[in-house]
């Protein structure tokens, strides 16, 4: 059971309060119609899926109902930080 700190509520709560929203820092293309099929497919479906440090979005579904980012190790499941959308992570690692 993960204990996730919500930076909006400023409290660590159990993972069942949240829902996972996938890899963070994927920017929606500003002009989708100008992209090739490869670029659009890459944006929609292809992910880095690292074993190790991962930046991901979570949604506090039964709390404040707001999004935020988490840096988590996908091998040990250790949560290294929570930070607001728009901020950059303090912890970055070589992704493998």
């Amino acid at each position: 059971m993960l204990l996730i700190h919500c930076p909006h509520c400023r409290e660590a709560r159990e993972e069942e309060e949240y829902s996972y929203r996938g890899e963070a820092h994927i920017v929606r293309p500003l002009a989708p119609e100008s992209l090739s099929d490869e670029e659009w497919g890459d944006y929609l479906f292809f992910r880095s899926n690292p074993k190790g440090i991962h930046h991901e979005m979570w949604y506090h579904a039964v709390g404040c109902r707001r999004y935020f980012n988490v840096t988590r190790d996908t091998l040990t499941y250790e949560i290294l930080e929570s930070y607001l959308i728009g901020q950059q992570p303090a912890v970055t690692g070589a992704t493998s």
Partner: peptide
């Protein structure tokens, strides 16, 4: 994904 990254590829998984 880990093996794909060894060849510089990303996968939709």
């Amino acid at each position: 994904s880990v093996v794909a990254a060894m060849a510089g590829l990303r996968l939709p998984v």
